[in-house]
Every structure is written in C-alpha cells, then in structure tokens.
C-alpha cells in the first residue's frame, strides 16, 4: 500500500504532464513492477528513489514506451503511451542510464541525428544543436569523435540529447552513475535549472542526497512497489519524526540490541558487525540512557553519532533495509 503524503499538483487546466496508474510488469515469475502509480505536474521534479533492482528502470521503460505494461497505463499530457505510440513520445526527453551516444560520430553529429529523429529541421535544428552544445559546454569539442571524450563529457552530451527538442517531460535514469564529483555537480545544477524553467522532470536515483537536493516530491520504490511518496519533509513525518543513533564499539552487538529495544525511547535497534543502528524518539534526550544501557550490557563504545532523519531513514523504516543494499 503506497503511503501518500500530499495531493499532487496539477496544471492550470487540471492536466498532469505524466500520469502513471497501476503499472505492472512481469518477467516470467518475477513481478518487476507491481501497481506503481504517481503523477508529475509541469515544473515539478519527481524522484524515484530505490536501490538497484527496485524496478526504477523497468518503470521508466514503460513510461517511455519501450516496454508494454502487463497492466496499468501511462499518459503523457493526456495521450496514452505505448511502444507503438508516436504522438506522446514527442513530449519526452529520455536520458538513459547507459551512454546512449554514437562513439564514431562527433557531438554535433550525434545531436543532429537525434534532433532530426525528434522532428527538428533546418534553422531550428541548427539553432538548438548550437544551444545544447553551449549548455553542455561542448562547443569547443563539437567536431571531435565522442569516443575521444572523457566520461563527464559523454555524460553531458547524453543529457544534452535528451534536452534537444525542449521536451515537456525530461526523464533521467540514474544520470550520475559512475560520474566524477565535479561532473555530477554540474549535472545536478543543470537539472535544477531545467526544473526552474518549467520542465517536468522524472529523476531516478539510488543516491539519497540527489533526491533530497533535486526533487519536489519523491517516490520510494522497492521490490517493484511504490512504498511511499511525498515531499522530503512529508516522508520524514511518515516515520514519526524519529532520529538515528549509531553506536560503534566491541561486544556482543546482537545482545546489546536486544537490551536496547526494551528502552521506551528506542523504536528500532539493528545490530551490525561492530556497530548498532538505532531509530529513537528525541535522540538528544535519549542518548545518555542509551549509552548507559549499552555499556552496562557489555559493549565497549568507541563512537556515538546522532543524525536527524533523512530519506535513508525513511527507506530503512519502510523497507527494513538500506538504500545501497
């Protein structure tokens, strides 16, 4: 059951850019996506946050019309999406996780090619190619084959191709995987700017900090199911405003966790190798009691860290596992 924190926004005419309703996709016995529903309004950045294998890419494949859903529907600006649908695809800009560029072509040739397929011609094509080269900082290298580009340059071109035709809905599937910190920051800034210009963005990631920085609303997906959605603060409130305390040290952490669970302030205690991860109510007040209980249970503490709740906490609370599991 999806926990919805807010009523999604709509356009002035009441139309969402993207409406996903009850998407289901099976591969043999595996249900990769199971009843996923969400909407995105103009100018909104929606994040699909989940670990690898959660169903994010399969969901995107159905949204882009690459895969036919076994059940459910996708509409883009009111037009039904599907593998053989042409009209709704005009509004989409897809930035796949893989570097979807041709290595033997130059940046300009790649942009010209995909621009023509998007229906751009003549002066409009030439202008947009120039603008995107400028936007991605590739104007100086426009004529060189992209196989000679650095990873960051390829990533920027990959995103630029998705922006070429000024789509109403930009879909970025884990665009920062394998990217150096500098390029990653540039990509995140680009997405922020695009959203500011009124473009609807669907952004999938398994990096919590990216989702927190970019997304107006976030859907937490795991095992093919949308576990919850809302703004960052709304999602955190869903788990009751609890804090996290991490205890590091030596001793029988399993036994210590068992002892700590008996404390009224401790909502959850998970033992890991040499550490304990606690979800507690009002950590600043409870920490002294927890430390005392842990040491009296035989744990030799070397470090205590208190952290305010974040999306990682929400994910842990909802799924019982960490985002990078």
């Amino acid at each position: 059951m999806t926990q919805t924190a807010t009523e999604p926004t709509r356009t002035a005419d009441g139309q969402h850019v993207l409406v996903v309703e009850g998407l289901v996709r099976r591969f043999g016995d595996l249900t990769a996506v199971d009843g996923v529903s969400f909407t995105i309004a103009p100018g909104e950045t929606y994040g699909l946050l989940g670990p690898n294998g959660a169903g994010k890419t399969t969901t995107i494949s159905m949204i882009c019309g690459l895969l036919e859903p076994d059940d459910g529907s996708v509409t883009v600006l009111g037009q039904q999406m599907g593998p053989r649908k042409v009209a709704p695809k005009r509004h989409l800009g897809l930035v796949p996780q893989d570097l979807a560029i041709y290595p033997d072509l130059s940046a300009r040739e790649n942009l010209n090619f995909f621009g023509k397929l998007q229906g751009l011609t003549g002066t409009e094509l030439k202008t947009r190619v120039g603008e995107v080269l400028e936007l991605t900082g590739l104007s100086d290298r426009a004529k060189g084959p992209t196989k000679e580009f650095s990873g960051g340059m390829k990533r920027r071109l990959n995103i630029g191709i998705g922006l070429l035709h000024k789509p109403t809905l930009l879909i970025l599937d884990e665009p920062t995987v394998g990217v150096d910190p500098q390029s990653r920051n540039a990509i995140l800034e680009s997405v922020e700017n695009l959203s500011g210009e009124g473009m609807a963005v669907l952004y999938t990631t398994h990096y919590m900090e990216e989702a927190e920085r970019l997304c107006d609303r976030i859907g937490i997906i795991d095992s093919g199911t949308l576990q919850a959605e809302g703004t960052r603060d709304e999602l955190i409130r869903l788990i009751g405003g609890v804090d996290n305390i991490a205890l590091t040290g030596s001793g029988d952490t399993v036994a210590v966790a068992e002892a700590l669970r008996a404390l009224p302030s401790v909502a959850q205690a998970d033992a890991e190798r040499g550490s304990l991860r606690l979800t507690v109510h009002d950590a600043p007040t409870a920490v002294a009691q927890i430390v005392t209980a842990a040491t009296s249970s035989g744990m030799q503490l070397s470090d205590v860290q208190i952290s305010r709740p974040n999306l990682e906490s929400v994910f842990l609370h909802l799924t019982g596992k960490a985002l990078r599991d």
Binding site: S61, C64, G65, L66, P83, R84, V86, A87, K89, R90, L92, L94, P96, Q97, D98, L99, A100, I101, Y102, P103, F114, L117, Q118, G119, I161
Partner: peptide, 15 residues
C-alpha cells in the same frame, strides 16, 4: 549494448 536502442525507441517514430 550501447544503450542507443532504448533512446531510439523512445523517439516519436515507428520502432
């Protein structure tokens, strides 16, 4: 294998 097929199939044309 490059990933360009997914991008091509997301284009507004007959796949």
């Amino acid at each position: 294998e490059f990933g360009t097929l997914a991008r091509l199939r997301s284009m507004p044309m007959n796949p």
